[in-house]
Structures are given as C-alpha cells and as structure tokens.
C-alpha cells in the first residue's frame, strides 16, 4: 500500500547565525500518522517543527537552505498566514491568551474575519469536544482562561489550534509541564485526532513517543539518525546511537 505523503523536506538546512541547527534533513511524513520525534536537548527537534510553520523566521539570526513541501507545494512560496492556518501548533508550555475561553478558541477564526456568532460558537464547541475539554468548561466559556488548571489550559491550546481546521498539528513537548493524568487525556485526544489530521509530536519523554507514535524519528545534533515504525525503532534500533539514547545511556 502506498502511503500518501503529507510533508516532505529536501536537504533542509537551518542555521542560527553560525550554529548549524538542522543538517541536510530529508524526511517524509505521511498523512494521518502520528510521527514522534525524540532526541536530546539541542538536537533540532523544535527547530524542525518551527520550520514547518515558518515560525523560525521571527528570529533575525535564522537562515536556511533546502525545501519543504506540504502536499507537494513549496511552503516558502505560499502565503505565510494561509500556511499557518493549515498548520496548527501546540507549544511546550500552555500559553492561553489572557482572555476568555471562548475568545481564545475563536481567536484564529476571528482573525480570518469570521464575525458570525453562530459559526464561532459551533467551532468553539466542536474544537473543545475534540480536545476532550468540552464537559469541563462548557459552563465556563466566558471565564478568563488563566483560571483553568495547567492540563486544561494545554487542552485549551489544542482546541484553539483545531478551531481553524488545520491539516497538520505540531506538538512541541506538549506534556512537559503536566501531570500523568493530564498527559493521558492529551494522548487520548491525539489518538482521536489522527483520523483527521497529521500529527507531529516532539517529546523529551521517550515512553510517550513509544506509546503514541506510529513512527518515530530520532534526532541528534541536527541530524536525523533513524526513522522507523515505532515498535521497530524501540525493539530493534538499527543505529547504535539510537539504541544508546533509548536505553538512557546519554541525553
């Protein structure tokens, strides 16, 4: 069976001034999969994510070479705002904007010019349900989102990313500050989401990649060392360095 390729990079190099953060990266990400990315700190995982929605460009020291294709379109040629509507992102720490739950989730749509209350309400409800948060906040939509707990805030951020109906969602260590129960809820949401979305999950938690990822990639010092089906990567890694990392010998 031929898998449909959603994202493809071609010799992607990223520098921040003289620091070579990503080195000749060639990677293919399939549609409707969860790709886990593991690797020690400073291995380029987050840089890779932020290349995909072109958030790296905010950094004045950033420059790059190579190509990234989404649905075979070169993203450097697409309108950056339209691109970011297609690619949602959930950051490491929950970053709710200090406005109401409703306003947070409808933010992306409102910025697209949607004013119709009914459409916004529907989108908010749908996104919150998909992020497994609806039952907890349906009576608190008008409340300031900073009043939610940490785990709820992170699911709020997922719902917010979903509301613009993206095709790809990038998770940048989404559970790093959360307790195990909140983590479990977010992983549950991810499983459900992959039916409709392509997910990329950067995580410091090797076990999380093992639990959630269909395939897992191992990054080291800006290079892709190994990419394989999750069960294969974790049971019979081909590369010695992958094995060392998984076994906890470094990192």
């Amino acid at each position: 069976m031929v898998e449909e390729i959603k994202i493809e990079t071609e010799n992607l190099n990223v520098w921040f001034d003289s620091i070579h953060a990503l080195k000749s990266l060639n990677i293919k990400i399939r549609k409707n999969e969860i790709l886990g990315i593991i690797g020690p700190a400073n291995s380029g995982k987050t840089t890779f994510l932020r290349s995909l929605n072109r958030l790296n460009e905010l950094n004045p020291k950033y420059h790059s070479s190579g190509k990234i294709y989404i649905d075979n379109q070169d993203i450097s040629k697409s309108d950056v705002n339209l691109l970011r509507r297609r690619i949602g992102m959930v950051f490491a720490l929950p970053i709710p904007l200090p406005i109401s739950v409703f306003d947070n989730i409808s933010y992306g749509l409102r910025m697209q010019g949607v004013r119709d209350k009914k459409i916004l309400s529907q989108a908010v409800e749908k996104s919150l349900k998909a992020a497994y948060l609806w039952d907890e906040v349906k009576d608190r939509l008008k409340e300031n989102s900073l009043k939610l707990s940490g785990g709820q805030q992170q699911r709020l951020c997922i719902a917010r990313a979903l509301a613009t109906e993206p095709e790809v969602i990038l998770f940048d260590e989404p559970c790093s500050g959360l307790d195990p129960i909140s983590t479990a809820k977010i992983e549950e949401a991810m499983f459900k989401l992959k039916e409709n979305y392509t997910l990329i999950l950067v995580t410091n938690n090797v076990k999380q990649a093992a639990r959630v990822g269909d395939r897992t990639a191992f990054f080291l010092s800006g290079e892709l060392i190994e990419l394989n089906k999750t069960d294969q990567l974790f049971t019979i890694p081909k590369n010695k360095r992958t094995e060392d990392y998984i076994m906890g010998k470094f990192g």
């Binding site: 905010l58 705002n81 339209l82 992102m89 950051f91 933010y107 697209q112 990313a161």
Partner: peptide, 21 residues
C-alpha cells in the same frame, strides 16, 4: 511575552493583527 506573538502568528493572524489584538 514573545510567546503571545508566536501563538497569535501560529494561528494564522497577520503581523498587524498580532500587534493590534
């Protein structure tokens, strides 16, 4: 916080919308 700007941009808002809202 810079993170506010990143959140707003990552949701597809333009630079001016991000500054304004």
């Amino acid at each position: 916080p810079q993170s506010f700007r990143e959140v707003s941009l990552s949701l597809g808002a333009t630079k001016w919308q991000t500054i304004r809202y």
